Every structure is written in C-alpha cells, then in structure tokens.
Simulated assay, not measured.
Amino acid sequence: MNYKTRAAITLLSATCTFSAQSTSFTDPIDGMFDMGEYLAENAYGFLPVPILITEPAVGLGGGFAGVFLHESEQEKEHRKKLAMESLDGGARLIPPAVTVAGGAATENGTWFAILGHRRTWNKDSIRYMGGIGYGNAFIDIYSDLGGLLPQDKPLSFESDNKGYGGIQKLQFRVGDSPLFLGVSQFWTRSEVTSSNQIINKILELTVGTETTASGLGFVAEYDTKNSFFFPTDGYSINAEYLWFRDAIGSDNDYETFALDGQAFFPLSKQWTLGFAGNYASLTTDELSLPPLARPYVKLRGIAAYRYQDNYVASVQSQLMWHLTPRWTLSGFAGSGSASKDFDGLYEDSEFAYGAGFRYLMARRYGIHMGMDFAFSEDENAFYFNVGSGF
C-alpha cells in the first residue's frame, strides 16, 4: 500500500469519526450496525464505498467513492417516521437527490475520477441524471482495425486510453403512469495509442488517435420497481437512441441503440428471483470507427471490451435468499454474445456465473452493499457492489 492510499484511508476515517461523534451507528429497531442516521443527521455525512477492482481488463486495484444523499428537514423526518414504523418503510419513499464522487486506480496504471448527480422534482415527475469523468485506462482491445482484418479474427493489442467526458439525461413522467420520456446527451474526448508502433501507425491512418464523440438522442423508461437502491419486486425497461454527427461535434457519424430490462419476482418472504437483459447495437456507413466505440458484452466475470461488435446481447438471472432482514445471499448466471450482424447473435456465446452477498447498510434508505464473486471460461473476478448487481 503506497503513501497516497494510506493517506486517503486516514482522511476518510478521520472524516467519518469526526462526523459520527454525536451519531449512533446502531439501528434502534434491530440493534444492528446501520449508517442511516449518520447519512441523515450529519450535514456532511456520506456513505463511504470502497472500490475493489478485479476487472480482468485492467487488473487489481481500488479506491473510494462517497455517496451523498440530499434531503430537506421535512423529508428526513417523514422518512425517519416511516422507518421507525416498519423495517422497509423509509426505503419505499421516492429516493432523495444523490451525489457520487470518487476515484480509483489499478496495478497496471489505470485510474479514473468521477462525479455524478441524480435528482427528482415535483414528486418524482421530473428526473435528471448527469455525470462527468476523467481517466486513463490501459486495456487490451480486440479489434479488426477498421476492417483490415476479418471480423472473426480480431487482433488483440495493448492500448493506452486517455479521455474525459460527460453524460446527461432529463426525463418527464407521462401523466401518473410509470412511463418517463426524455432527452439524452453524450460527449467524450479521448486519445487511443498503443505501445506497438505498427498498431499505432494503423490507428493513425484509419480512425486517428484522438477522437471526439458527441451524441444527442431520446430516452424512454418504464419503471415499477419497489426500491431505487435494492428492488425485490417490479420491473423496469430502459431504451436509448443516440445520433452521433459532425454537426454536433462528433468526428464520426453513427447511431447507437441500447435496451436494458430488469424484473424482480418475490417468490416468498425470503426468496426473490431476478432477471436482467441487455441489447445494444451500432450502425454506421463509415468503414472504420475508434476501437472503443462499439458496444461490448457486460457480464460479471467477463472482461470489459473482451467481446465487442456491432450487435451485443446478454441475459442473466439471479436468485436472492434474504437470510435475515439485513443479510442476503445470491447466486447468478448469464450468457452474452457479440456479432457483426443481428442474425449472428448467439451463434457463439459466452457464459459467466457466480455468487455474492449483501448487507443492509442504511435501512431507512434501503441501501445494500456487498460483494460478488464471478467466473467465466477464461477469467474470474470479484466486485464490490451497491445494489442488486444488475
């Protein structure tokens, strides 16, 4: 552990200790460790979330993120009252505004810093989410180098990716329904280079080493989940379509579409079955695009950007056993596929599986934290997660 890591841990501990001098970390209902009062009653209270990275694409690493919850005094008192009346009373309220700030680094030199914010207005009839980030990632890219190689025989090469950017989404509820419609913006400025001079030259001649991606589009969401942080009932469907064009500052012209879904079914008081699916596509008339532009298979246990193409899809399921109101154990499994053409999806597929646990860290907000241990044919990893893991 280097001196910067030790200093960060010391500072975080001191901050938590100072803020917690007059705050109880014991829940008055069940007597268990809980950070709900600390988050609600301290002006500078935040949930410290350790970031443990075992992502196969970048190696071992870690860092910290702070989750800040913003509520008015009236909202705090209402949530506290409901939390005292039932175990999940406060958790079912409309979530407060949330700010997340943090960063992390890994053993191969990869690092990043992020700042994100989510807020609702008018009794959750308007939702806003935005974030910015800056980072430097050293990852292996599996690419056909702009069409110079066959799609079924991509070349793997080490890459150095530097960049910064941001996203924004603004959504409006349709009447009193669970449907939200809105607009979305995506913008990044990145530089991709390789330690291999031949690869570097090919990048320069095809897509260039510096790229700006700028997209505008529409987003739709249908959400009936019973909790923002840890749902156990209901479902959600999210769809987003983005246009990337020179007229709005993009170096390449293409369109992306993403469809994500989650569903949770309470089998009994102690068991919940969850499903999640993802589909993403990219269409373009250009012969070559930056290596990281295309979507990739996103599953716990499979390295980011390992399976990447014009069309990707994944499905996964998760069985959760609520051992006690505080502790939850889970097992999960999923498969994903990437293909140049839509018809080729799942002609070849990758499988991943694993198990994990969650602890109810802040009962009045329904915030669960824990770890997942995931495995696939070629890799394995563990993840520190807030939420269900989907």
Rank of each mutant, 00 (worst) to 15 (best):
L148Q: 10
G59S: 11
S86W: 10
E37G: 08
K201F: 14
G130D: 10
P178V: 00
T209S: 07
G31I: 09
G135H: 12
Y311S: 04
R358W: 00
F157E: 03
S72I: 01
Q270K: 15
G59P: 05
P95M: 08
T106G: 10
M371R: 05
L52T: 04
L47I: 01
A104T: 01
P291E: 05
Y164E: 14
D27A: 02
L216N: 05
F64N: 06
L329A: 10
D176T: 06
L292F: 14
V98E: 01
A374T: 03
A333I: 13
Q151I: 11
L345Q: 00
E71Q: 11
Y38S: 00
I139T: 06
S22P: 03
T5D: 11
E77A: 14
E350Q: 14
V192S: 13
A220V: 04
K153C: 07
A313K: 13
S314V: 01
T26W: 07
S24R: 00
I9S: 05
F332K: 13
T232C: 15
I141S: 04
G356Q: 01
L299R: 09
D27Y: 04
K80D: 09
K4N: 09
E77H: 13
G102M: 03
S194T: 01
S177L: 09
D223E: 07
G59C: 08
A65D: 03
Y307M: 11
D372K: 12
K269G: 14
G146C: 07
M1S: 12
P231C: 09
I139K: 15
Y346F: 11
A276P: 07
G334H: 05
T120K: 12
K153E: 05
E204Y: 05
F390M: 14
G249M: 07
K153F: 12
A97N: 03
A105R: 01
R92L: 10
P28H: 02
T209P: 08
I139Q: 15
G131Y: 02
G165E: 13
G147K: 06
A362G: 01
A239K: 10
Y305P: 02
G370F: 02
S337E: 12
L170T: 01
L287S: 14
F229A: 03
I367W: 09
V98A: 01
F230T: 02
A91N: 05
L216D: 10
A137P: 00
G133R: 12
E379T: 11
N252A: 04
G103S: 12
L149Y: 02
T188R: 14
T328F: 11
D27G: 07
E73T: 07
N385P: 04
I94Q: 04
A352L: 15
G90M: 06
L267F: 08
T23I: 15
L115Y: 01
D223C: 02
G261T: 10
A293Q: 12
A293L: 10
L12E: 03
G301W: 02
H322K: 13
R358I: 03
H78S: 14
G175Y: 09
I248G: 06
K162Y: 11
